[in-house]
Amino acid sequence: MVKSSLISIQDLRITSQSAEKVLISNVNLEIGKGEIVGLIGESGSGKSLTARAVMRLLPPDMKVSGKIFYKGTDVLAVNPKEHRHLLGSGIGMIFQDYRGSFTPFIKIGNQMIETIRTHYKMTKNEAKSIALTVLEEMGLESKRVYDSYSFQLSGGQVQRAAIAMSLALKPDLIICDEMTTALDVMSGERVLDYIDQIRNKTGCSVLMITHDLALAYKRTDRMYVMNQGEIVEEGLPEQIRCHHKHPYTKKLCSCLLALPAKKSIQKKRAYSV
């Protein structure tokens, strides 16, 4: 079902040298152009490690083997400089802890300009107009946010500004690691809506790493379920939800709480436990 794959992870294996432990193994994952893919797992399942391996953000005592092809190049094989060149503008990553996305000492606008100018040769004014446009696209008051420090904004606003910053580099793929976990429900929804919008507009792909099965059902085209360092199941949200095969997926789905069903509400409250 993957038409043209943007990134393809093959037999990824990460071992911790200090603890002599295999953290993840046999991870095969593929993301097509314009696709939004969910990677579901509980804490310790290795879902964040997978993303960090792509970005080479792992601590030095972790050993990575396998292949990660991004537009046909194995990013694990190239040297750090090429890696930065290859992925710096191509893949944007957004973290759970939004407070870490911006330095509190520099205004958000200036940080954005600096980031844009490290990747693209352009004047300050050009960079500024791009920054303002992407902030606007994320539904923010661009002028105000541009002139603010990160601590002057709410969590949802900072998170959207972080997305705006990665958008400014025109990425092909945005990796969202538990992006909405630290946010309030409504601001989380807003952020997700904007992700959908920009995906439709720019055609970039999204890898949505989350522990929230309901979010993945609603927001992804395809999803992978990860448990204890391995991908146990892959499929469309419908498949995972109703026709899962692996016992872990079954357990996970059985733990998804549901709101009372609209029709059966008069008879009995329905839980899916």
Binding site: V185, M186, G188, E189, A214, Y217, K218, L256, A258, L259, P260, K262, I265, Q266, R269
Partner: peptide
């Protein structure tokens, strides 16, 4: 039992929409 009642506050409705699967 009245969770989907039309009297719900708009904010509640939005929360419910966000939470429904």
């Amino acid at each position: 039992a009245d969770i989907y009642h039309s009297d719900r506050h708009p904010y509640t409705k939005a929360l419910i929409k966000a939470a429904s699967i």
